[in-house]
Nucleic acid binder design. Sequence first.
DNA 1: TTGTGGTACTGCGCATCGCACACTACTGTG
DNA 2: CACAGTAGTGTGCGATGCGCAGTACCACAA
Lengths: 110, 110
Amino acid sequence: MLSVDTTQLLKGVLDLAVLAVLRDDDGYGYDILRRLRTAGLTEIGDASVYGTLRRLFAAGYLTTYVVPSEEGPHRKYYALNPAGRTQLKQGGEVWREFASTMNTLLREPA
Amino acid sequence: MLSVDTTQLLKGVLDLAVLAVLRDDDGYGYDILRRLRTAGLTEIGDASVYGTLRRLFAAGYLTTYVVPSEEGPHRKYYALNPAGRTQLKQGGEVWREFASTMNTLLREPA
DNA sequence: TTGTGGTACTGCGCATCGCACACTACTGTG
DNA sequence: CACAGTAGTGTGCGATGCGCAGTACCACAA
């Protein structure tokens, strides 16, 4: 808490990030985790992603299907449905507005 | 939770916002609340601000002094100390980096 | 006087959410 | 067989924003 913590910044944004990486291609949890880390969210925990996926599914933003893998355990794929795409769009707007407000607050005055 | 919630976005950022509005002028809680709402964080709760101020003070980022008011109850002013300015600077950098990552993720591909 | 509204702060308890941790389970390799 | 990598589930914790109740002070109205 003394140092700057990235964890709290993720609150409410991880949903959006997960929806975003599912925009173009379906994905399963472990892969989504890799996508997010590659994208720059390097400190993300695995349980956070799995939890978020379950939450988004429960909220009706995702569809899911299980694909057995011959090179490991089964993979539970998730895909955006129309509600998810709407949510991604609206969430993105809210985020941009919020980020804009914060940037204004944080801009150096000189 | 069905609609887009601003509350979660504030997590970890409210600290930064409060430090930011204290950058140029000392302030007391009720006034800081107004500054934040004016700046665009319109849905912020009063308890959130008071709590954040106590937390930032406990963390050693703020100094405080009480000023009696003749037109209402006393006002507990807060001011940034050097540690607070450092935190504001570092936090701002972390925020910008994080926001940049999110913007990249959210950018429309076409 | 009593009451009402605005100002200003405190404290309690709740809900959300990211996360650490432990566990299960499947595959391939040494 | 042991072990590492992959893939998922479940539990409980900690941090934090927030709603709400309560306290207190002032000004003004009925």
